[in-house]
């Protein structure tokens, strides 16, 4: 019962402090919002890249390039054969013109190369997904086919992408850590200023016998409210920015097509980000409040 009475008191006092020092609270919320918006942006990119890599890893797309003199019928026959193999799916025959069109879509320079060469140098190819466990069997099954020039495996590309991704993740984590520290530092300083502004009140409270928890806890509540408000506003700004960037810049981004399919973060991620901002508020304000000494 006493705990609930105390918590009620801390909540009321914290809210009163929060509304009383409006300008300082707004400043703190602004800094936290900016930090959380940037963290949300980075987290969204990281989340989507990570998902894309997982999808590619679990279900890689292979390309089988056929020799230049392979006819369309031979290509079709091989496609039909591949469809019958275990662990193979999404088999698609790509004729040279279609292949060049795709290449030109992604890399406009490829169209110019074609003009220079006065012809399409691309062979017929087959795109397909191969389950990792069936890869050796598929390679064995293709050995007798002399029309198979080469098999392109995405693993090299994937490992390159993964190493880039982990470097970027480290960079993102570093920036996020700096932003978190900056926010905690801001909350700490704002609460310190608030404490200094209320030094007289704090002294009176101590002289009439208030326990330190009754003096410190409302400041922690105040910091928590700043963290919560900044977290919600920042997450909303961050996801709004993602929508705007997606609509205006990523929709036609051809080099990395998955970026045009970028999705906003799931609710659990948002909950995590807001919990992080609350934790920043609690940590910064508790540190500041712990410096209040006994009179």
């Amino acid at each position: 019962m006493k705990l609930f009475i105390d918590l009620g008191f801390f909540g009321r006092e914290g809210w009163a402090n929060f509304t009383r020092s409006r300008m300082l609270s707004l400043f703190s919320i602004l800094i936290i919002s900016i930090s959380i918006a940037i963290i949300t942006l980075f987290s969204t990119v990281f989340f989507n890249v990570d998902n894309y890599l997982k999808e590619m890893e679990n279900n890689p797309v292979y390309s089988i390039f056929l020799t230049q003199d392979t006819t369309a019928k031979e290509g079709r026959d091989l496609s039909l054969y591949l469809e019958t193999l275990k662990g193979v799916s999404d088999v698609k025959l790509v004729m040279p013109d279609e292949g060049m069109k795709k290449l030109a879509d992604r890399f406009p320079l490829a169209g110019e190369i074609q003009k220079t060469l006065e012809g399409n140098p691309l062979p017929i190819s087959i795109q397909l997904r191969i389950n990792t466990s069936a890869l050796v069997a598929v390679r064995q099954a293709l050995k007798p086919y002399s029309i198979v020039e080469s098999i392109y495996s995405p693993h090299f590309f994937l490992s390159q992408l993964k190493s880039i991704s982990s470097a970027v993740s480290f960079f993102i984590a570093l920036i996020a850590a700096i932003l978190v520290l900056a926010s905690v530092f801001t909350i700490y300083n704002v609460i310190r200023i608030t404490i200094l502004a209320r030094q007289n009140d704090i002294a009176i409270m101590q002289l009439v016998g208030a326990d330190m928890k009754f003096i410190r806890a409302p400041f922690t509540v105040e910091g928590t409210l700043q963290g919560l408000s900044g977290g919600i506003i920042g997450a909303l700004i961050g996801s709004g920015l993602i929508s705007v960037i997606k609509a205006h810049y990523l929709a036609n981004f051809q080099y990395l097509p998955f970026l045009s399919r970028i999705t906003t973060l799931p609710v659990s991620y948002f909950a995590g980000i807001i919990l992080l901002s609350i934790a920043m508020g609690i940590f910064g304000s508790t540190m500041a409040a712990s410096r209040i000494d006994y009179v």
Partner: peptide, 8 residues
Amino acid sequence: FILNVLGY
């Protein structure tokens, strides 16, 4: 306030 800090 006094009564609050005393937990009444």
